[in-house]
Amino acid sequence: MPMTEKDIADQIKVLTSQLGLIKDQCKLLEDELKRLEMEREQIKMKELKEEEEKEVKEHQCQCQCQQLAVDDWRIIHLKENPVDNRINRDWEHYRFLKAENKKLAARLEIIEAGQVADITRMVNEEINYSSEIERLKIALQISESKRGKYIEECKKQIKELKEAFLSLTGCRIEFTSNGYKVSFLYAENQASDLLLFKMENKELELLENDFSKSLKTFVHRYLVQHDSYPAFIAAITLHLFKKSFNVE
């Protein structure tokens, strides 16, 4: 059974709602990526700072050694040299930061590639939505295409119906901002020889204009006496036909 316009509209609403949820979840993923990138930059900066401190300390050690040699100081070797211990601790911290930086870089690459293993549950769920987003986009495009074709077909049928109605009845009915406009095939002036109606409390009412003023006899006979709009419109159509073709 072909889908109706309401079915298509409902489906579009559902797809749009789902797409909105997925976009929100993707936004969370983007925030997570930004946070990881910031952590990565912070670790890089800290790593550079540690490297600079290490170089400064090595330079200071060299200067101290040179000074001791110049002053002919006797060097005493300690089993637990404080300078060596500090340098070793700095190297261990440097290696730790470097390993953490590699881990973050790997996590970012995995997230960007969409190949999530065991990063976090949220990241895993977000990445799984990427294919769902594409599927929904395609489904939405198909629905919009079907809806567009349906609307065009409806417009075509409405146009054909109006043309058939004009040919069969000799009048044309159109919507206005507050009611209806009826024009006539055999009217002498199509722009001014027309009737205006409005719906008031589920009752159709004829609005006064120059053309309706010229039809007081028809108004009294068919609307006042018999309350028949079909007879009123038919009588006017016949009147205009006779007037147009000089028929008695």
Rank of each mutant, 00 (worst) to 15 (best):
G170M: 08
E5V: 10
K27Y: 10
E47R: 03
I142G: 02
A99E: 15
I75R: 07
E205Y: 08
L168G: 02
R135C: 04
L19F: 10
K159D: 06
V224L: 12
I173Y: 03
R40V: 00
S214G: 12
Q225K: 15
K146C: 09
L78P: 02
K46V: 01
K102D: 10
K162T: 04
R89P: 01
L195E: 12
S17E: 10
Y186N: 14
A191E: 12
Y129L: 15
M122S: 12
L19T: 15
M3P: 00
D24T: 10
E53P: 00
L168Q: 11
E80N: 06
H93R: 06
L168C: 02
S143K: 03
K102T: 09
N201S: 15
S212G: 07
G179K: 14
W91M: 03
E109F: 09
T176I: 00
E55H: 04
V14S: 06
S212D: 06
E160K: 14
V123S: 04
L215T: 06
N246M: 02
S131N: 03
N81R: 03
L238K: 09
F175M: 13
S228K: 03
E37Y: 04
F165K: 05
E53G: 01
K137T: 04
R74L: 07
S130V: 15
L33S: 01
E208S: 10
Q190H: 11
T120N: 03
Q64V: 01
E41Y: 05
S17M: 01
Y186M: 09
E50C: 00
F96K: 05
L223G: 13
L195V: 08
E132V: 09
V219Q: 14
N201Y: 14
F211D: 01
M199G: 00
G170H: 09
E248S: 08
D72H: 08
L207M: 11
A139H: 06
K57Y: 02
K202A: 13
S17L: 03
E125W: 07
G179P: 13
K13E: 08
D227M: 07
L33W: 01
W91S: 00
Q190M: 12
Y94G: 11
K216P: 00
I43V: 14
E47N: 06
A139Q: 12
F245L: 12
M1G: 13
I233S: 05
F245G: 05
F245K: 15
L223A: 13
E53A: 02
T176E: 02
Y94T: 07
E5A: 13
K98A: 04
E47D: 05
L97E: 03
Q64P: 01
E132R: 06
L108N: 09
C63Y: 04
G114W: 04
F165L: 10
H93L: 03
L78N: 11
L108Y: 08
F175L: 12
N246T: 08
I76A: 06
A235H: 06
I158R: 13
V14W: 09
Q64R: 04
R221C: 10
I110D: 11
K243R: 09
T120A: 03
K44Y: 04
L215P: 07
N178C: 06
Q67E: 12
S214E: 15
V70N: 05
E200S: 08
D72K: 11
T217S: 11
R95F: 00
E153A: 10
F241A: 05
